[in-house]
Amino acid sequence: MIPGNKDTRDGILFSLPFLIVFVLFMVYPLLFGFYISFFQWNILGTPKFLGLQNYAELFQDAKFWSSLWHTVQFVLMTTPVLLVMGFLMALLVTSKSPLKGILETCFFVPYIFSMTVVATLWAWIMQKDFGIINQVLGLLGKEGVSWLTSDKNAMWSISIATYWWTAGFNMVLFTAGIKQISKEIYESAIVDGASTFQSIIHITIPLVKPTTILCLILQIIASFNVFGQVYVMTGGGPAGSTRVLIQYIYETGFSYFRMGYSAAMSYILFVIIMAVSVMQYVFLGRRND
């Protein structure tokens, strides 16, 4: 194509800058982390080879299992609700309402705030003695709720803050999905006498299914990676009842400096997330066939 074809040289030259960064800071740490997970590894001191001992210890570590369980709880508490909220928001945003533009901006705007700001704000709103929710409950003559200080409520409270923060993200994806459905399908449904509700059930929900799967997978992965909300709102408390897996990885590695053990836990998380990602390819791949 080009005089004196230099495609090979050019291809390498154009790829090289990124590839160097990619190998140094993605491929290498990925392999290095796996290597570390077989050692007793502190920042100071000589690493000691343990074989599979870190992984064996993991399976008997009650804190690991409880952190993993809290993470799974958070995934279960957030994923279905966030999908439904995103979908309902998208219905409003794609409706004929004159307020749809304002609705879209309002629903989306929390997402651009950084998670630490959102978590700090909700920790204040849900504060036990002076937070606005309990103040208003007090004015109504009701007793205040221990939003963040009771082990029964804390994870739900963190989930509520998360709903407010990220539902708008799913709304954007659902809105894009709904807009792709052709108008003619709806028009012929109206001619056939279908109500708006029937159109949503029989047209929108089935046709938006690829988006639903995409949202589902992205949401599960994002929820598995939960950390910041918990760190700011409860610090994992009360009594460790909201400690999630990434927090335990973080504490093990950077408070107790047990890097090897921490790396072993990250690899378990990695395997879980990979399994979810692979499911994405299976499901989305089938759609493309």
């Binding site: 291809g11 993605m26 990676n225 990250s266 998380l269």
Partner: peptide, 28 residues
């Protein structure tokens, strides 16, 4: 250029790596 497709998929596989897995080795 030769190897383009393999390289492309290798790089794209990087999208599946959750950053949290890298924190300990990156810190070291």
């Amino acid at each position: 250029f030769p190897g383009r497709n393999i390289l492309f998929w290798a790089v794209m596989a990087g999208m599946m790596v959750p950053f949290q897995v890298l924190i300990v080795p990156l810190y070291l």
